[in-house]
Simulated scan of single mutants.
Amino acid sequence: MRPVIIESPYAGDIEMNVAYARAAMWDCLERGEAPYASHLLFTQVGVLDDSDAAQRARGIEAGLIWGRNAAATVVYTDRGISTGMQQGIDRATAEGRPIEYRSLPDFVLPHDQMKGELAAIGQSVMNWIDELTQQGGPLKDWTPAESPAEVIPDLYNMLEESFACHRQACGETKVLAAELEARNELIFPRELTDDLRDVLSMMMWNTGPIAHALRAGGADIPTKAELEQAHVLHWLTLLVLEHGSAWREKGEEKLKEIRATLTAASTEGDA
């Protein structure tokens, strides 16, 4: 492998320049070369501080010393020629080392690549949002950011707010349920359900036999038709609120218990 010393920018937009220098090293390796980039080595945390002029000069000089062993100085020019790069070029000229100028036309800066990916994803999400905003739910009437690249974080923030409201509402519901449970109260629905309709539509001739059974079981029910009906409807409504669609089974179980108790008492009396 041919040893080469890389010249590319570091100061300025450090994050982007580091990404570019790494791409340059990869390019050298693909060419079968052994690259050396002092600005990626000496600028690491705990080595030299590139913002300090004296330390920066020391790092540049150390890199150029190693350059004496290189077969060539390769200069990557897409991001311009910095002062440090020019020093490397001048030293290579003075030492008679070949200088090669290179470009990375396919290099995409990380933030540009990410922005492009986000834009593509964002466009798909925007199409999806256009459909969902026509429906109900948290996205109804929501207006996303105009830029596709900003849709993802904008959507995230919107959903976070929606979930926060949902968590708050759930918390309030749990508190209310706990309070009602402590007070031994049930929540009566605002809408008439099928089960409540079946109960509340019972006529007196339906509720009369049930009232007689409950009275025989010890319930204090006046012997007046409309009062018997009221008592039975109240009892059955409670079963609906407590057991839902299983109210009939629960009611039958209770009536069977009453009948069994009465039968047992009658048998003992005959004995």
Score class of each variant (00 low, 15 high):
L241D: 07
V199N: 01
E249C: 00
N127G: 15
T77K: 05
A120V: 12
I14L: 03
L41E: 08
P3H: 02
Q55I: 07
E30L: 13
P189E: 12
M204E: 14
A145L: 08
L41R: 08
P105N: 07
R183M: 03
A164V: 08
W247F: 11
T207L: 03
W205I: 08
Y10E: 02
D90Y: 05
Y20T: 07
M202F: 02
L64A: 06
L132Q: 14
I129Y: 12
S103A: 09
E61T: 12
T133V: 14
C170S: 13
R215Q: 14
A71D: 11
M203W: 05
D90W: 06
V125W: 06
P9Q: 02
A71W: 06
V45L: 11
K224D: 14
A182P: 00
L159Y: 10
H234D: 15
V45A: 15
A21M: 07
E268A: 08
K174T: 01
E95K: 06
D194N: 13
G96V: 05
W205V: 12
A92R: 01
Y76E: 03
Y76R: 02
R56Y: 01
A145D: 12
L155V: 10
A70M: 06
G208W: 09
H243L: 04
N157S: 13
A19I: 10
D194G: 15
S124G: 10
T237L: 02
A265K: 15
E146T: 09
M1Y: 04
A178L: 06
A260S: 14
I14D: 01
L233E: 11
Y36R: 09
A72M: 04
Q134D: 07
E268M: 05
E30I: 00
Y10H: 06
E179Y: 01
R31Q: 13
R102N: 02
P189M: 10
A92V: 01
E226L: 10
A34D: 09
D13T: 04
